[in-house]
């Protein structure tokens, strides 16, 4: 919530279609340094596709993505992705590597840090997400919540300029969701720039600077959580919020 005016990520008019289905139909947004934005909307409205298009895991058909003013292009892609961390719905920890090696790998191979420096940093980040005592476990030995926290540590160790979270709690049991949300809230409060696709109303209300509501491949409404939750302007937003806030209280 230590938001500044300095622009980190700019997304300009992204379009993406799969076959006949236009999943993104012109999405634009910006993230300033320290800002936490939460993208909401019913399933199939292109939220995950938006995140995947931002770091070009799925290359957009049209539109541009700029990181600190530099456009992502096929030539700059690998060099720029290290600055855009991605947290996956199903964690995608490297299954053959111990937790600590998951957190060290990118530092060693991409950032070319020394083993000692990478180890020290990995332990710091594991400490931060509360997993220092699991450093020498393999992913298969961890619960889903622990795996997701480890994957957040892996993201953080790369010193990203922005982290994209793709439904980070959707694959978790309700009792494991809390530990991941706590870590994410902490990051938001420490000023990490983050774009989060999530239906976690609690996180959105308390940690987000802005909520982006998507429907049918476009952004229909955005604004601070206080406004958007209290007075949604758009009919689709109202209907959606009614459903998910009802689920939350249930």
């Amino acid at each position: 919530m230590t938001k500044s005016d300095e622009e980190v990520l700019r997304v300009e008019d992204l379009h993406k279609r799969y076959g006949d289905h236009a999943v993104l139909r012109g999405v634009s947004l910006t993230l300033t340094r320290g800002e936490a934005k939460v993208v909401m909307g019913s399933s199939g409205t292109g939220k995950s596709t938006l995140l995947r298009c931002i770091n070009h895991l799925s290359p957009p058909d049209a539109g541009r993505v700029l990181l600190e003013g530099q456009p992502l292009t096929p030539a700059t892609l690998n060099a720029m992705r290290r600055h855009i961390a991605f947290v996956f719905q199903d964690f995608n920890l490297f299954t053959h590597l111990k937790v600590i090696d998951n957190v060290r790998l990118g530092q060693r191979r991409i950032l070319k840090r020394s083993k000692a420096a990478a180890t020290e940093r990995a332990m710091q980040e594991l400490e931060r997400v509360g997993l220092a005592d699991r450093a020498h476990y393999y992913p298969a030995q961890l619960s889903g919540g622990q795996q997701q926290r480890a994957s957040i540590a892996r993201a953080l160790a790369m010193d990203p300029k922005v982290i994209l979270f793709d439904e980070p709690t959707s694959a978790l049991d309700p009792e494991l969701t809390g530990e991941v949300v706590t870590v994410m809230k902490q990051l938001a409060s420490e000023g990490m720039t983050m774009l989060v696709v999530s239906h976690e109303v609690g996180f959105a209300r308390t940690a987000a600077d802005e909520i982006v509501f998507m429907d049918g491949g476009t952004i229909v409404e955005q604004g601070p959580p206080s406004t958007l939750f209290a007075n949604p302007a758009h009919e689709r937003t109202r209907a959606f919020l009614k459903v998910i806030t009802h689920q939350e209280s249930a």
Partner: peptide, 27 residues
Amino acid sequence: VPAGQMQAARAIGMGRWQAIRTIVLPQ
């Protein structure tokens, strides 16, 4: 090897061949 492994490797900035060597082939 699940597709997510390759995606996670690419997402931290690995090239395709590097991801194949370091992530996919060991698994």
